[in-house]
Write a protein that binds this DNA or RNA. Sequence first.
DNA 1: TCATGTGAAGGAATTCACAGCG
DNA 2: CGCTGTGAATTCCTTCACATGA
Lengths: 215, 215
Amino acid sequence: MVELSDGTVPAATVGRLPYYLRALRDLAAEGVGLTSSTELAERSGVSSAQLRKDLSYLGSFGTRGVGYDVESLASYITVALGLETEHRLAIVGIGNLGHALANYSGYATRGFQVVALLDASSDVVGTRVADVTVEHVRGVAEVIQRERVSMVVLALPGNVAQDVADAVVGAGVREILSFAPVALQVPDDVVVRSVDVGGELQILAFHAATRAAAL
Amino acid sequence: MVELSDGTVPAATVGRLPYYLRALRDLAAEGVGLTSSTELAERSGVSSAQLRKDLSYLGSFGTRGVGYDVESLASYITVALGLETEHRLAIVGIGNLGHALANYSGYATRGFQVVALLDASSDVVGTRVADVTVEHVRGVAEVIQRERVSMVVLALPGNVAQDVADAVVGAGVREILSFAPVALQVPDDVVVRSVDVGGELQILAFHAATRAAAL
DNA sequence: TCATGTGAAGGAATTCACAGCG
DNA sequence: CGCTGTGAATTCCTTCACATGA
């Protein structure tokens, strides 16, 4: 019996749902209709106990003694992640990274649409990138209203990220993905996810140094 | 008294060290010479207790009743992260993202150098990107040897990521940063950090959906 | 019988609150 | 006295191991 739980899903579990969904879509693409917690966990890079525990927070989707139906489990996770509704994105900062993000093809297999691009440089404002005309960041609030933007991606230098975040939050956005290596100060009801490439490399450097020290 | 600890630093702590280092460098750039756990924590987006606990795993760097010397704490974290040695990077996959990463200027303020670029498409092999000539990925093992590459960045589609990872690991690389949305299978002594932009957006979508459901 | 789903146990990370030291 | 450094308490997450039910 399928039953969705209440709203209490651990953050760590939410963070893994995209991996499960990815693995399920891969399985579906391979024509696999039925899977097990062992197989799905292996493809997702977690333990089978972890996978089952995670799914238990969302409800009960499998058949004991059998496994999980790939299609239907994918559907449930899709719904749980809120991917059945369209999410309209604006990207602020059309430098190297912003360009790449604007052109990023498979936005996690639909659900996301880039509807606005903004920048502060007159070099790019007015140009078209990925079929969208770049507008000046000073009009960010208006653009967000006009395009009904619900998520903003910040691909800009750390020193201006906070100002843009303030403007974006003021315009009603509650979900931000930031590539700027700064801790953004936002109200409690705003969710910020941060991706820091430099930081990731530093973490790898730490492991390299630890390995070297162990010799 | 400054004393470095043994090699047991929690993974969660390691993940935050880059934020502390960033905040310290900002402070130094502003001409601040002395800081407190409260100030530094605020700029890093963590609690002051968290910061002090994290630092305690590395050693003892502050002065009770006073605070931390910005320069020297930055130095210690730099050493702890292994950033005093040069790290030679290869980027595999010179698409939109690979381009952006190759041109990414401040590689976390030095310590990292892009010494090789590889791709499988004849459209880009042979071209120069960020002063480096793109080579064919089939020669990845040779390139890694020749350029003494110690870290590899994978900016390529999920379906080929595992093959390249295998080749790269076979050539002796033990640190990988992957932008491919797949769980790479690697030996225990290889460290893989994964950045999944699509996944981050899905996590934001989950929060948006949860918010909507709460109304 | 077999793999799911889940209480219970165990481990890790965070927070608390204060001892310790300049 | 003030702020660091840290045991203790708490909370959160993961793993275990088995009851459950198709």
